[in-house]
Simulated assay, not measured.
Amino acid sequence: MPPEPPAHIAPLTQAHAEQVLEIYRLGIEEGDATFETEPPSWEVFDRSKLPDHRFVALDSGTGDVLGWVAATKVSDRCAYAGVVEHSVYVHPAARGKGVARALMSALITSTEAAGIWTIQSGVFPENTPSLALHHHVGFRVIGTRERIARHHGRWRDVLLLERRSPEIL
């Protein structure tokens, strides 16, 4: 019998809130994941994420959350109805095991099924693991937002990445 996969993907719900926000906090503390300085409350997080496009990777043995991915609208304008921005975070102890790739696959599947043609993200250039993940799942760098904002007292660049769906024409 083949070994059980280390994680399975499920919709992200309030039941996962504490672990999701803790993984977010750990990513914030590392300093190269986001401009945020602390995670939001669950209520703010929940309101801002699109319900059909947010997932968790759950440990197959314990049920613990290993990582999460979620998308937000980029605009309320009708012309941008097919464009979302996403975030993906994996617990430091679960990295390098394909968790982020599985989460991104779930997000891509759900967005394409909904007719969304572009997923975008902003990534610090120093976050090379994130850049490698995004490249692997079909994202490309479309530009650099130089000195876009200050983070812990210093100006930071952000690479703008996007994945255009080959399925939605």
Rank of each mutant, 00 (worst) to 15 (best):
L103D: 02
V69Y: 13
T111Y: 04
G67R: 11
V74P: 08
A106H: 03
G82V: 10
V123G: 10
M104A: 01
D59M: 05
K97H: 09
M104T: 03
M104C: 03
A102N: 02
T118S: 12
H86A: 09
T62E: 12
Y89W: 05
A106Q: 02
S105C: 05
W68R: 08
W68P: 12
G122C: 07
Q120T: 07
S75M: 06
M104N: 06
K97A: 09
E85N: 10
I116W: 13
T118R: 15
S75Q: 10
V65P: 08
A79R: 15
V88Q: 01
A94F: 00
E112N: 02
A102D: 01
V84W: 09
A94E: 05
E85S: 09
A114T: 02
A94P: 07
T109S: 12
V123K: 07
I108G: 00
R77L: 12
L107A: 01
G63D: 12
A71S: 15
T111K: 06
L66V: 07
R101W: 03
D64C: 14
H86P: 06
K73S: 13
V84Y: 14
S105E: 06
G98C: 00
G82K: 09
L107Q: 02
W117K: 10
A71Y: 08
L58M: 13
I119V: 14
A70K: 07
H86R: 06
G115C: 03
T62R: 13
G67H: 12
I116E: 08
W117R: 15
V123C: 08
S105L: 02
Q120A: 06
C78L: 09
V83P: 08
V69N: 15
V83N: 13
V84F: 13
Q120D: 02
T62P: 05
G61S: 13
D76K: 13
A100W: 05
V83R: 14
A94R: 00
I108V: 01
S60Q: 11
G122N: 07
S75F: 01
L103V: 02
R101K: 08
R77M: 08
V83Q: 12
A93L: 02
S60K: 09
L66E: 13
M104Q: 04
S60E: 09
T109L: 08
G63E: 10
V88S: 08
G63H: 11
V74D: 04
S121H: 03
G96M: 00
V74C: 13
G61V: 14
G98F: 04
R95W: 03
A79E: 15
A70R: 07
G115V: 04
L66G: 02
G67C: 12
E112P: 00
R95N: 00
K73I: 11
V88G: 11
S110R: 04
A102V: 00
H86K: 05
L107F: 04
T111C: 09
H91D: 06
A81T: 02
R95C: 00
G96H: 06
V83G: 05
V123H: 08
V65Q: 10
H86I: 00
L66I: 09
P92M: 01
